[in-house]
Simulated scan of single mutants.
Amino acid sequence: MYESRGKGRTMSITSRLWFSAVTFLTGFSRPMLYSYQGSLPRLPLPALKDTMSRYLRSVRPLMNDDDYARMEKLADDFQNGIGKKLQRYLVLKSWWATNYVTDWWEEFVYLRGRSPLMVNSNFYGTDAILLHPTNKQAARAANVCHAAFLFRRLIERQQLQPIMVQNAVPLCSYQYERTFNTCRIPGLETDKIIHFGDSTHIAVYHAGRYFKMPCYYKGKLLTPKELQIQFERILSDDSVPEKGEAFLGALTAGERKPWAEARSKYFSKGINRTSLEVIERSAFVLILEEDSHDYSEEDPEQLDNFGHAMLHGKGYDRWYDKSFNVIVMKNGRIGFNAEHSWADAAIMAHLWEYVLTEDLMDSG
């Protein structure tokens, strides 16, 4: 699994035999999503010397000769000083943790960050730009919403196949658990990720208003047509947003500490708390945009504008704390905006590929 690969490298005979055996044995059964979790190897801990060597190699292109010479001196001091003690701590942790870096990476790289999520952490995806199945906003929203809940069902029933490298080496599937019903909650010094119980509704934002939209009835997922009727009712609703409602999402777009303070002061009780829980506990957030974006070979700037809309919108019309937002433009184009701390982009890409495929099949 850890053998070097690349141009000019040849896989060893041992690895070839191992890959052949694994491919042959897995061909007799369809593994469930978490089938390999108990057999995944621990993350190997590199020697301190190797870590410093790789670090210096990674920063060399960014530094001139004088700065690099200084960095070499600092690296040598670290390696022969406090680095030895820290390495011993890592060795101890690696004995009882399957991945000695996961919890620290999540906390210190993501959750302790105090800068805005909007452009510093969140990422986005766009529609299948060469295909445009419908211009009806409510119909596209219904198909996408239905497909997303089908994907959630596959996760719950472990009917998704694990992602496999070269169709033989499984990747960890743990992050799938937090795809839905998950929200990042702001804190004064560090945020936390909350995964709520199974949610049967989504939060819909349209024209400055938030709606709680049920997607199940008596335990059964609504059909795309039934979901479309609800989206059409939201689109035809001409009610006026409550004071401050339209710009509420801007709190999730700014610095984390002010948002944590505002959340504690203004959203700890009453209707504000109830309304906030509807958004944070939803399966996901869906945005019904009032603008249209498209793709044109003659005007590449259109795709740039599409990407900008998916990444940051107007700055207040996304709920950036949510695990992901589905965005449906007025002309039926779709995209997503996803918060990064709960999972790698590969998980969101898997969901989005499934959604687009199911959506196109339903539309066809």
Results as ranks from 00 to 15, higher is better:
139 A>L: 11
12 S>G: 13
238 D>C: 09
307 G>N: 07
329 M>Y: 12
269 K>T: 06
1 M>R: 00
29 S>V: 15
230 Q>E: 08
67 D>N: 08
17 L>T: 12
216 Y>R: 05
43 L>G: 04
291 D>V: 08
12 S>K: 02
284 F>L: 03
157 R>G: 00
293 H>K: 10
176 Y>E: 07
64 N>A: 02
236 S>E: 09
343 A>E: 07
315 G>L: 05
312 H>F: 10
337 N>F: 09
85 K>P: 02
235 L>R: 07
313 G>Q: 02
127 D>E: 15
145 C>H: 00
17 L>S: 13
305 N>D: 12
26 T>R: 13
149 F>D: 03
259 W>P: 03
104 W>E: 12
55 Y>S: 03
259 W>T: 11
230 Q>G: 13
202 I>D: 06
293 H>L: 05
133 P>H: 12
224 P>K: 07
153 R>S: 12
45 L>R: 04
265 K>G: 00
182 T>N: 04
10 T>Y: 12
137 Q>R: 06
261 E>A: 10
164 M>L: 15
137 Q>N: 05
273 R>A: 11
290 E>A: 14
111 L>W: 03
113 G>Y: 10
216 Y>I: 07
235 L>E: 10
190 T>H: 10
170 P>A: 08
186 P>M: 10
154 L>M: 15
2 Y>I: 08
350 H>C: 14
252 T>E: 05
327 I>V: 15
87 Q>D: 14
315 G>S: 06
63 M>E: 11
196 F>L: 06
351 L>E: 05
96 W>C: 14
96 W>N: 11
47 A>T: 08
